[in-house]
């Protein structure tokens, strides 16, 4: 009985920590959704692009780890700058659907650029953190938990705290929330939409880089990262598209649910249900709580 419980705990904790990896990807989506009410389909491509550039800087140019990371982050700021200038500004008054389509196009451009610059083969990313159980936890708690998962959890925690402070207490954060509520009114009182968009896309780019590092260290830096990022969709539906805590909690729920279901219910379906179980959960949320757990309720005075 004790052993069964321990096994369950292990599956659960493993799932929760794997979930933080989803949360990291989802964070990037939330940032952009907050400011421009658009689901950014190119987020997956941004993850791929940023981490491939990071690995490329290290392996092809022998740039040290930290410097390569900073360079990759700067590159994402440049990507944000170009996106604002060449995609968002010309589409300033276009409908949200048009911007959505533009992000799909942007995704292809980034995927193509990344592969043109750095090649198509799978690359290894070594963060110096092993993807194997931490001995101390295994000995004392009898749980097998990967060091990489724990790191991802910590990184996610730091990022959410940082973003929360940024939104709540800084001037630019206030501007961003104002734009998220009513871009027209924000511009009427002199909040420059240009700067806000630039900030949001750059921040989303850096978040993509961090998420890409975590995923790349686990699964290798490869094209599959693009599709993996779409796992963020059920995360966002559950957590709410416009909520940063929602992205985190949603990720945890998806991670835990898919692992637990895989282990306990999977065998009845012949396994491999973690691929689609999150989407089933997402459908239930869409039916009964479309704004997600933490999404901003649509407030309407009557």
């Amino acid at each position: 009985m004790v052993e069964e419980l321990l096994f369950f705990m292990e599956v659960l904790v493993g799932g929760l920590l794997a979930g933080t990896m989803y949360s990291l990807v989802a964070l990037g989506f939330v940032l952009i959704f907050k400011a421009s009410a658009t689901f950014n389909f190119s987020q997956g491509a941004m993850v791929f692009f940023s981490v491939l550039a990071f690995v490329g800087f290290m392996q092809d140019f022998n740039i040290p780890f930290v410097l390569a990371f900073i360079l990759a982050a700067l590159l994402m700021v440049v990507v944000g700058l170009c996106t604002e200038r060449f995609v968002l500004r010309p589409l300033m008054n276009a409908s949200e659907d048009t911007v959505l389509m533009a992000t799909i196009g942007l995704g292809y451009v980034l995927e193509g650029l990344a592969q043109a610059a750095w090649g198509v083969e799978v690359r290894r990313l070594d963060l110096g953190i092993g993807d194997f159980p931490v001995p101390w936890i295994a000995d004392n708690l009898k749980l097998f938990i990967s060091a990489l998962d724990i790191t991802a959890g910590l990184v996610a925690a730091i990022m959410i705290i940082g973003l929360f402070l940024l939104f709540k207490y800084t001037k630019i954060g206030l501007g961003l929330r104002a734009v998220a509520d009513d871009a027209g009114a924000a511009s009427s009182i002199g909040i420059p939409l240009k700067h806000i968009m630039l900030l949001v896309w750059s921040a989303a780019g850096v978040v993509a880089l961090v998420a890409g590092c975590m995923w790349g260290a686990r699964a290798g830096v490869q094209f599959a990262l693009v599709d993996l990022a779409l796992k963020a969709l059920p995360v966002l539906i559950i957590g709410g598209f416009s909520s940063i805590p929602g992205a985190i909690i949603g990720g945890l729920i998806i991670g835990a649910v898919e692992k637990v279901l895989e282990v306990y219910i999977g065998p009845f379906f012949g396994g491999a249900i973690e691929g689609w179980a999150p989407y089933v959960l997402a459908i239930f949320f869409l039916l009964y709580r479309p704004e997600g757990l933490f999404g901003e309720k649509i407030i309407r005075r009557v």
Binding site: K171, L174, G175, R177, A178, A180, D181, D182, G184, A185, A186, S188, I189, G190, I191, E296, I299
Partner: peptide
Amino acid sequence: VLEGRRCFGHLTVEENIIAGAYS
């Protein structure tokens, strides 16, 4: 001041007013 007031609904009253000093 735009037609239809256009407040930032999810911000508090005070945050709304402070946002006016953004420039």
